[in-house]
Simulated scan of single mutants.
Amino acid sequence: MTSTRIIIMAKEPRPGQVKTRLIPALGAEAAAELAHRLLRYTLEQAIAADIGPVELCVSPSAADAYWQPWLQRGVARISSQVSGDLGARMAAAISRALNAGTPAMLIGTDCPDLTAHKLQQMAALLQTHDSCLCPVADGGYSLLGLQRFDSSLFENIPWSTSQVAALTRQRLKTLDWSWAESDTLKDIDEPDDLNGLAMSYPQLTDRLLPTPAP
């Protein structure tokens, strides 16, 4: 199978600046800790998939102290996201990989269902399609893989809304590109997502969730 780069779009988990929709349920510190655990888990799965290079494309800056231990371990390349909205940042990251001649998959850190096995499945599908997609239950997607680049996939998309996956499919159809999709996955954005996360991935929520009242 052709090597496929995995690009993880990651944000430094600073309290009050990440997982803000979970803060009412967890508090700012615990929400940031969950973001850190999700990031670490995502990186572990990407490396375990063993399908090609793994890149952490981070914000605000790869030079920040938080990223230095990750950099020193040498487990992945670390790059800084460009300025602009999410679409601009994703477009810059994946076009760089594609320009180097490597198929690539963009993923976030909010979807623990993107296991090593799932990443391997999507990389295999990408071998025979122009694109691949992992839709999530809220209408977005957790993975977008491309064999070639077109900016229309990233422009004028209302990010963080239920329209993202549907609009992306429309753009792929307009381009007359083939694409493959996984089953619908679940990402972690809202307080209602936490109980399911605790049941499926208890290691990610250990000592973070409030103890239920007797």
Score class of each variant (00 low, 15 high):
Q120V: 04
S182I: 03
I47P: 00
G52S: 06
H117A: 15
L167T: 02
L114M: 08
K19V: 03
L204D: 07
T168K: 05
V54K: 02
D110S: 15
Q170E: 13
D192A: 13
S151F: 07
N195V: 11
M199I: 14
D50C: 03
P112L: 01
D130T: 05
C134M: 14
D176I: 00
M105R: 12
D193V: 08
P69I: 09
S95K: 12
N99G: 15
S95F: 02
A104R: 08
G196E: 14
I6N: 07
R14T: 15
R37D: 06
K11A: 14
A46E: 06
L185V: 11
G27H: 06
Q45R: 11
G101D: 05
K11G: 06
T102F: 05
T168G: 01
V75L: 14
L119T: 07
M1P: 13
M199S: 12
K173H: 14
Q147M: 08
I8H: 04
P13M: 03
L38S: 07
L197W: 01
R40M: 04
L39K: 01
L172C: 04
M122P: 03
P210M: 07
I51Y: 05
S160W: 09
C57G: 02
A62K: 13
A32P: 02
F154I: 03
L194Y: 09
P103T: 03
T205Y: 00
